[in-house]
Computed example of a mutant assay.
Amino acid sequence: MPGPIAPLRSDRGSAPAAALAWVGTTAVLVAALALLGQGVVAQARAATAADLSALAAADALAVGGDDPCAVAAEVATANGARLVACSVVGQDVVLTSSVVAGPLPPAQATARAGPCPVQSGSRSLDGPGAHFEERALTP
Rank of each mutant, 00 (worst) to 15 (best):
A107I: 01
L33K: 01
V28Y: 03
V88F: 03
Q91S: 15
A34C: 10
S14F: 13
A6C: 11
Q108N: 05
G127H: 14
P106N: 02
C69Q: 05
T25G: 14
D66K: 03
G24V: 12
H131A: 11
G37V: 02
Q108R: 06
R45L: 04
V89W: 12
T138P: 15
C69I: 02
A85S: 14
R12K: 12
G13Q: 10
V71I: 08
T26Q: 08
S120N: 15
S97L: 09
L20D: 07
L104F: 03
A15T: 07
A34T: 08
G129W: 09
L20I: 05
A19P: 09
V94L: 07
D51Q: 01
L8F: 13
S98H: 03
V100P: 14
V89G: 05
A58T: 04
G39I: 09
A81N: 00
A19K: 01
A15I: 08
T48H: 09
V30G: 02
P105E: 02
A21K: 04
S53G: 06
E74P: 10
V30S: 05
V71S: 05
V100H: 08
E133V: 15
S10N: 10
P128N: 06
A19L: 14
A27E: 06
P7N: 11
L104V: 06
V28W: 07
S120H: 15
S87C: 05
Q43L: 13
V75W: 02
C116Y: 11
Q91C: 09
L125W: 13
A47L: 02
Q119G: 10
D92A: 09
A107V: 00
D51Y: 00
Q119E: 10
V23G: 14
A58C: 04
V23C: 15
E134C: 11
L33Q: 06
G3A: 13
L61P: 11
G13F: 08
V23Y: 04
V71K: 03
S98T: 07
V75N: 02
G129V: 12
C86E: 03
A32L: 06
P2W: 12
A15C: 04
V93C: 02
A109N: 00
P16Q: 09
I5V: 15
V30F: 06
G121N: 11
L33R: 05
A78P: 07
A34Y: 05
P106Q: 02
V94M: 07
A70M: 08
E133W: 14
L29G: 11
P115A: 13
S87Q: 12
V71D: 06
S87E: 11
A60R: 01
E74T: 12
V41I: 07
L29S: 06
G13K: 11
A60T: 14
A78L: 09
A47N: 05
P68V: 02
G114L: 04
A56F: 06
L36K: 07
Q108P: 04
G65Q: 12
D11C: 08
P105H: 01
A32N: 05
Q38L: 10
V88C: 03
V71L: 04
G65I: 08
V71M: 05
H131C: 10
G127Y: 11
C116T: 13
N79C: 02
L35C: 04
V23S: 15
L55G: 06
A73I: 14
A27Q: 05
P4V: 09
D59Y: 08
R45A: 02
R123W: 13
